[in-house]
Design a protein around this nucleic acid. Sequence first.
DNA 1: GTCCAGGGCCGTT
DNA 2: AACGGCCATGGA
Length: 228
Amino acid sequence: MAKKLGLMKKIYQLYLSLSKKYGSPKEFWMKWCKKQKTKQNREDIALGAILTQRTNWRNVELAFKNLKSAKVLSIRGIYRLSKQNKNLLENLVRPSGFYKQKAQRISQFCEFIIKNYGSLEKFFEQDLETCREQLLEINGIGPETADSILLYAGNKPIFVIDEYTRRLVKKQKIAKRLSYSHLQRLFEQSLPKDVRVYQDFHAMIVLESKGLKAGKQTSSIYARKLLS
DNA sequence: GTCCAGGGCCGTT
DNA sequence: AACGGCCATGGA
């Protein structure tokens, strides 16, 4: 138990030291979006979370560009297109890789939202656990994708564990067991239950991994988030 | 040509 | 529970 307390302390210290180094990624990100005049909406974030599975963000941006050109870069738009021309949707999404799967996955996600709730906003009116369970039931949405959507699109307090987090855990020798739920529990216990803290910490872990500095412009500076 | 990049699913042990 | 094969593209 004492050992665990030490671990929790270590994680929290890590958060503090990263904060000192990077400031607030969220602030930075929002300012950056404003400057670029990109509107950053929940729908893009949720769709991006699916499209970026095991894929370079640059390729996701190419897919977004295609969707935007076809004027279907929205949950409703994709839902409509998936009904009328599945093949076209696959082609638009193609650059993001695994394109048949991903076209299918975003279609199912969009259908679920539109049919049951009409909009993402409505969906997110439910509590975290309810949202999470429902997302996980959709084929192709696993824990990481679900939690990314919840944290970044839904602003709900749940910590995202991804490859970068695991690398950090290994490097810092924070834990031996690397299972998703174990690490998630550990991080959440170590930090105040706060959306901003979770978002910023996760984003800073990514920044740290990539050796970037806040203030430097990159296409995916804020975690798995959006468009340039 | 080779390697890699913010998963998830579905088999087999 | 853990592990391996599979899905596919664009850029370095």
